[in-house]
């Protein structure tokens, strides 16, 4: 060992290796590698199982028109429901988070925090039944009204569903389901907005809302986007609640309120998997691969949005 060593190497580079440091560094590294392995394993499984469906002749794929035609309405349905959920939940979650951190009396704030976190603990099947039994019938009058007055928009073209088991209802159920995660993360980042900058705004003569706009929202923006992406991930992948509420299976349509809706990828897999055989299974897994790719793309997009103005993030 000493023979191969360059004699001029400075001694100071041989840092002391403490066992505690090595154990910690090793276990942290192992955790990091482990999650990558799991992810790679899932991706490899999806790809290998999807290959038969990807290469099969179009008429053999369920539906008889090829994989693209099979997956396209599902992708549309998945995105419609998830985006609607996000559009409804994000402003609401930001409002809740701001109320809890900067407006509510301290005792109310603590209670509200618990109640919202509780929403996250409810199993999705319960949300499904709630959506089916309570929300869907309750929303029927809105469906009718929307078809009458907003019918010029393709989203509300109608005819209005009489059961309420529509993409619109699904979007609202999903919105309630992703509300806790977005509001919990927003609450966390808002409460960490530096007092230094909040006081700077107040000392300039900012009202409470102006202080929030100057010092809290810009600081929390990337956190809110991160929370929204986690929520979107959950909405994209939600299976049970959608399977219960939505009367899906129809072709691609932007219409949110009619009784013929496209299904979503995850709920379609759950509903079809028990009876699927042979190439049918491969097709379902191929649709799962598409969902995987969509989720990945959404997350990368979110990262890009957050990093675009990293100079101004306040992290430096």
């Amino acid at each position: 060992m000493t023979a191969t060593k360059a004699p001029s190497e400075p001694r100071s580079q041989q840092a002391v290796r403490r066992p505690g440091d090595r154990i910690f560094a090793g276990s942290a590294k192992a955790s990091g590698v482990f999650i990558l392995l799991v992810l790679a394993g899932v991706a490899a499984f999806l790809v290998s199982e999807a290959v038969p469906a990807l290469t099969a002749p179009a008429e053999d794929v369920p539906g008889g028109e090829g994989l693209g035609a099979y997956v396209a309405p599902l992708v549309l349905g998945t995105l419609l429901g998830a985006v609607l959920a996000l559009l409804v939940a994000t402003p609401l979650a930001v409002g809740i988070a701001l109320y809890v951190t900067y407006y509510a009396p301290r005792r109310v704030a603590a209670t509200m925090g618990y109640v919202i976190d509780l929403l996250a603990a409810i199993p999705s099947v319960v949300y499904g039944f709630w959506g089916l039994a309570v929300l869907a019938p309750a929303l029927v009058p809105f469906h009718v009204w929307a078809a009458d007055t907003l019918g010029f928009l393709s989203f509300f073209a109608g005819p209005a569903s009489t059961s309420g088991r529509t993409m619109f209802t699904v979007g609202l159920v999903l919105a309630v389901m992703i509300l806790p995660i977005i509001s919990a993360i927003s609450r966390e980042v808002f409460s960490q907005a530096p007092a230094l900058h909040r006081e700077a705004a107040l000392a300039l003569g900012a009202t409470r809302w102006e202080m929030i706009r100057m010092a809290v929202l810009p600081y929390g923006k990337s956190g809110v986007i991160g929370g929204a992406m986690l929520g979107l991930g959950r909405a994209l992948g939600e299976t049970m609640a959608v399977a219960i509420v939505l009367s899906g299976g129809a072709g691609a349509t932007l219409n949110l309120i009619s009784s013929s809706n496209p299904s979503t990828i995850a709920s379609n897999i759950a509903l079809r998997f028990p009876e699927a055989t042979g190439l049918g299974i491969n097709t379902l897994i191929a649709s799962g691969l598409v969902l995987f790719v969509i989720t990945l793309a959404v997350n990368m997009l979110a990262r890009w949005i957050v990093n675009r103005r990293a100079d101004f993030s306040g992290a430096n």
């Binding site: 230094l196 003569g205 810009p218 600081y219």
Partner: peptide, 21 residues
């Protein structure tokens, strides 16, 4: 709010808004 608009303040630690130019 009006009082603070008439009486400016500079703090112990420099606190420019990091998200602004």
């Amino acid at each position: 709010v009006n009082v603070r608009r008439q009486i400016g303040m500079v703090f112990q630690r420099p606190n420019p808004f990091p998200t602004m130019s």
